[in-house]
Amino acid sequence: MSDKPDLSTGEPRSDSSGDAYVGLLTQIMTQTLDQDYLDVAQRRESSSGDSPPRWQVGAVAVLLLFGLMLGLAALNTAQEKPVVAAERAELIEQIESNQGKLDNQQATLASLSDEVTKLQQLLAANVADDRLLTNQLTSLGIDAGTLAVTGPGVEVTVDDSGYSVGESGGVILDSDLQLLVNALWQAGAEAIAVDEHRMTTLTAIRFAGEAITVDYRSLTPPYIIEATGDPDTMPARLLETRAGQAWLDLEANFDIQFEVVAKDKVSIPGDARDNLLYAEAKGAS
C-alpha cells in the first residue's frame, strides 16, 4: 500500500496498509468515503458548517441504496409469490381438505363396520332362533293339524246303504263318523282327514240339517277318511276297537259300505286356522 496515496488524514485507516486483496469497488467506495470524510473535515475546519456535511449525504445515499435493493428484492419476491406461492397454497389447501375428508371417511367406515358386525351377530342369532322356531313349528304343526302331511297309512271309505233300512239304519250319522275318527286315533293315527278336512282339536263333526258337517261344511257320502300311521297295524287295530266292531255290524246288518285299505302313501291337508280368539297360552311348551 505504499504506492497508494496516503489520504488518512481525517480517519485512521489501520487496515489500509498491506491489504493487497481490496477489490476495486471497495477501493472506490472506501476512497469515496474517505474523500467524503476528508471533505467534511476540511469543511469543518474552513466553515462553521451551515450546509449538511458530506458524510451524511453519503449515508443517506447508502441507506437509499439499501432500501432500494430491499424494495427491489421484496418486489421481486412479491411478483413471484402470487404465481408460486398461490399454487402452493392451493395445493396445501387441497391436501388439507382431502386429509380432512379422508379422516371423516375413515371415521364413517369405522362406525359402519361396527354397525355391520353387530347386525351380523343379531342376524345370526335370529337365524338360530328362526331355525329352532321352524323345527318347533313343524313338529307342533303336524300334531295340531295346521301342516299338511304325507305318509303311509290307511284309507277308510264309508257310504250309506243304497236303500233305506228302517228309518235311519242305512244312513251314516255324525256320531258314527265321530266314533270312527276316535277309533282311528286309538289305532295309532298321527293325522286324520275326513273328506279332505283335517281333524284338529277345533274340528267338530256334527249333523246339521240333512248332512254331516265337518268344520261347518256339509259333506256328501261316500265319506273318505284318511289317516297316516303304521299301515301294517292300523287296519287290524281299528277293527279291534268297539267302533270298528260297530262299523262291521253296520256293514253286515245295514249294508253300509265300510272299507279299510292300507296305503303306502296318503296325503292329508292342513287346516290353516292358527289364530285363537279366546285362549291365551300360559307359559311356553
Binding site: 322356531l133 295346521t146 311348551s285
Partner: peptide, 30 residues
Amino acid sequence: SSERRQIAVEEARQRLEVLTVLTGTAAAAG
C-alpha cells in the same frame, strides 16, 4: 334382512303360541 327375519320370528312366535294351545303343550287361559 334382519327386519324381515325379526318380523318372521315374531310371527313364528305368535304361531307357536297358538300351536302350543292347539296341541295342548301349554297351559291356556281365557
